[in-house]
Design a binder for these strands. Sequence first.
DNA 1: ATTTTGCGCAACCAAAAAGTTGCATATATA
DNA 2: TATATATGCAACTTTTTGGTTGCGCAAAAT
Lengths: 106, 106
Amino acid sequence: MRRDVFQAIADPTRRAIIALIALQSLTPNTIAENFNTSRQSISKHLRILTECELVHQEQQGREIYYSLKIEKMKEIDAWLEQYRKIWETRFNQLENVLSTIKKQAK
Amino acid sequence: MRRDVFQAIADPTRRAIIALIALQSLTPNTIAENFNTSRQSISKHLRILTECELVHQEQQGREIYYSLKIEKMKEIDAWLEQYRKIWETRFNQLENVLSTIKKQAK
DNA sequence: ATTTTGCGCAACCAAAAAGTTGCATATATA
DNA sequence: TATATATGCAACTTTTTGGTTGCGCAAAAT
């Protein structure tokens, strides 16, 4: 059972859940109301998100509030960093080319 | 058949392929040499990456060179942006709290 | 011209994932 | 106390995915 952040965000429903609980804690039922799927399937997605340590649970009476562990999202950001470097370099190279052309035009 | 960038990067082999061809174009055979899986399975991953428009193919005789379309990676970056805003805001809030504590300490 | 090489594609298979159904458990409420 | 509500969990089904095998085709090498 692969269980990492990349796997977690691969599913569109999970990305939508992430977006929902990014700013406020919500219960499974409330989350499920936003989708046209069953509570149980949302529950399953929440379990996966929990296993990936992407969400935090807080029991309050018989309700469980789920919220996003935003720090975990930084893992994706960190992975992306290497590619960000590449596209920035390419952009700079393009800039150099453009400025060279400019100079030659004078 | 869902086919988006998030689905593409969900598989560790595909992430490794992306890393491999990020800086230089490679043929399927060369890519496959870096893994202990068959050429065909790599070929299949390349097809998925192509369908997601994450890679670019360039035929050269009977060889096909694959390279990363780095711009596509920016889609992930764009998606991440909304969460980056959140964690930066939270950091600033923490900063405010800390500076308030500092002031009170004086 | 024949053989080898690089590749994609389709068919198949096993494993995993997504969703459903049914239940158990704990907390509220009447 | 009996009932309703919120939830997790396990079993089952269907769909998707990753991988293999076996082709066919075109380009290179012999």
